[in-house]
Simulated assay, not measured.
Amino acid sequence: MIKAAFCDDDLSILNELHVLMDNYRVERNQEITYTAFHSPLELIAQIEKGMRFDILFLDVLMPGVNGIETAQEIREYDSAMKIIFLTSSAEYAVESYTVNAYFYQLKPIWPESFYRLMDSVLKECAQEQRRSLILRCKSGITQISLDRLMYCEVQGRTLVFHMQNGEQLKSVGSMDDLSGQLAKYNNFLRAHRSYLVNMEYIKTISSKAILMVNQDEIPVPHGKCSEIKNQYLEYAFSKDQVVLA
């Protein structure tokens, strides 16, 4: 289920977006829920409380807090949301991309352009959801790409995600639940009760540790080395990688 939001101080624009989205849902047979906000402060307040949207249509020119400032606030809580700016002027087009905007849509919004835009953003959402995780971190809601996740370790009740770029993200959760969610992906290996490893980033495997490409070492439990090596070799063969024995 995709969750969308509209934020515009012009009620006629909100009504227009309602009609466009209703027609799109029916014609494309899409399950999309949406919420309308007449004030950016109201929108920010709901996001601060934990409300999450996949797509946001956000007016740029609004009294008080404008759309760019609103997006900057939102990015402190959610880096994954697809923000689509709505405006009658191209004045803020360049600035909009400083907050990682998905698109900058000029008004008036014609049905044809709305449909093309929705087709595009939904396709990207689907692609990201298939190979990504949504984390609720102290810094807010973050979407991470599984392809960039090197390994995850549990520290107490906290999961620490070690990313390819050296970034570490922390989220409350259990390793058992995470392993269950990622079981459908054959590149993740539960090497230890406290570690889940992306085999794409394994450099070497010894009887005591798995050495990752960034030189981090993952402990190998006693007696589990052969099992880990076999699982890694099965993964390598499944990718048609050359293995010399």
Rank of each mutant, 00 (worst) to 15 (best):
D78R: 06
S79Q: 13
A80R: 09
M81W: 07
M81E: 01
K82W: 08
I83A: 08
I83L: 15
I83K: 15
I83R: 09
I84C: 07
L86K: 02
L86F: 07
L86I: 03
S88C: 03
S89H: 15
Y92G: 11
A93K: 00
A93I: 08
V94C: 03
E95K: 02
S96N: 02
S96H: 00
Y97H: 03
Y97T: 07
Y97A: 10
V99T: 13
V99K: 12
N100K: 15
N100D: 11
F103C: 12
Y104S: 09
K107C: 12
K107L: 12
P108A: 07
P111F: 14
P111W: 14
E112C: 12
E112W: 14
S113W: 10
F114D: 09
Y115P: 06
Y115M: 05
L117M: 11
L117N: 08
M118N: 04
M118F: 08
D119H: 04
D119Y: 07
S120I: 05
V121L: 09
L122C: 11
L122A: 00
L122W: 06
K123A: 02
K123L: 09
A126C: 04
Q127Y: 06
E128H: 05
E128Q: 15
Q129M: 13
R130L: 13
R131I: 07
R131Q: 10
R131M: 10
S132K: 04
I134D: 05
L135I: 05
C137P: 00
G140P: 00
I144S: 07
D147H: 12
L149P: 13
M150T: 10
Y151D: 04
C152K: 02
V154G: 00
V154F: 01
V154C: 00
R157E: 07
T158G: 04
